[in-house]
Design a binder for these strands. Structure first.
Lengths: 255, 255
DNA sequence: CAGTGGTCTAGACCACGCT
DNA sequence: GCGTGGTCTAGACCACTGG
């Protein structure tokens, strides 16, 4: 029944099994030369087998060091709730809800923020109903966990929202009650969109990612009380560094 | 400044650029032999370059046919809202909210359902507070879009919830008002968890996935009015076939 | 500096698709 | 049947990591 597997697939399957059964407690795999000898094949064939597992993101290799089993321990992240009742902002010393989340999980947050005025990417322009040719304000946040770049969070604002508000303030500012409320546009509704895709080459370089890293992208469009879009936040992170948590309560239920 | 790139990286970068600039309107790339000649390298070097782009999920190859630019067009999916006010269930002919979503986007839904009693996976047992050694009921749904397996949705129920309820009915049943309400355990709260990871080997075989496909996993724990967990739904889909949409309304705002 | 993975060559044969 | 990618060999040299 089984249609005679190729050598590389046999080797890949064998190694996959060993990994699953915990045969490599240190995470370290045998060297390519050792595997050549064990399976009696040319080095390129061993490499092909290891490439199969690399594409599955099961292992990573580093020049000089060997192959290791990849680990997968995403941090939990809760996108902020509606700002006027966000109590986590009060955590002392924590810049914002994200920093509080990270701190609570025993890690060290840091973020770099810059503000600029740009032509919006196509998706953002559609979400914000930006007229053709009009610019938007973007606050770009690079969020580090334990010194490692773990998340990109870009917030886009229409000019009529951002102008003359604290949104334009560069740097990592914390505004009691929230940025949008301070700008005079508290949000009444969010529309979230979550997708998964592979990291681009540019992202892999910027974030120093292992080859074959999936990304999770969370896009939140915020609407004001008149149901006009006033902000789009695009949060991008490698799947092995971020997990999204969301809560829903049935408003019809008395609690 | 540039530290003398390898041949495979130069070729990969060149092809990446061409793809981005739309140099291959049909999506079809030149053959390996053509690229050997153009870049004056051995075939294995061309293959290494193409492997770089394959790992980025930019291209796919098929034996006999050549390399093609991969496309990425996920379908939108909204996890159901609280059931007693789910009006989309009334769409005629649509089995459930998922089927309605797919139909609305111009595609053909179909699903296969089976019910069984199993030992829960570790994560599910933790979410459901299942005592050690106790079994749970699982309804496994395989959801097809236009005949292609696009999503796996497994719902887990504690025995005390499922017993004697329509949950145990095999097949693709539709219950007006919702399964949980019919079982006597309407849900008052959801806790959602969303992550991104690479497809496992088993998933790739089952769903006939291209190599290097990221998966999106949505886990929803439902709680009853007494805040006991009564259901866990684990929805798994390839990132290029599914995008999750969620809506939030500030309950404090009068609308 | 010994051992590791990364790059590269120049072949050969095979399995599959397309027309 | 011709052209495509997939598998495999047997080498060589290089770049990096680690003790």
């Amino acid at each position: 029944m089984t249609p005679a597997q190729s050598a590389q697939d046999r080797i890949a399957a064998a190694l996959r099994d060993r990994i699953r059964q915990g045969a490599y407690p240190t995470g370290r795999l045998p060297s390519e030369r050792d595997l050549m000898e064990e399976f009696r094949v040319a080095r390129n064939t061993v490499r092909a087998a290891l490439d199969v597992l690399t594409r599955e993101a099961l292992i990573v290799s580093r020049r000089g060091a060997g192959y290791r089993v990849r680990d997968y321990e995403p941090l939990d992240w809760r996108p902020g709730t509606f700002e006027h009742r966000a109590s986590r902002l009060d955590v002392p010393g924590a810049g914002d809800a994200w920093a509080a989340d990270v701190t609570a999980q025993g890690h060290e947050p840091r973020q770099e923020v810059d503000v600029s005025i740009v032509a919006p990417p196509a998706g953002v322009a559609a979400d914000l109903l930006t007229p053709d040719g009009e610019l938007v304000v973007v606050r770009r946040r690079r969020r580090f966990v334990d010194g490692e770049l773990a998340q990109l969070a870009d917030s886009y604002y229409p000019l009529w929202v951002a102008e003359g508000s604290p949104i334009m303030t560069p740097g990592d500012v914390t505004i009691p009650g929230g940025l949008m409320a301070a700008a005079g546009h508290p949000q009444a509704r969010f529309a979230d969109r979550i997708e998964s895709r592979m990291a681009t080459h540019a992202e892999a370089v910027l974030m120093n990612l292992d080859p074959v890293t999936p990304m999770i992208v969370h896009t939140r469009v915020g609407f004001d009380v008149d149901d006009r879009p006033v902000r789009v936040i695009v949060t991008t992170a490698p799947g092995d560094r971020l997990r999204i948590l969301l809560d829903f309560v049935d408003p019809a239920v008395t609690r």
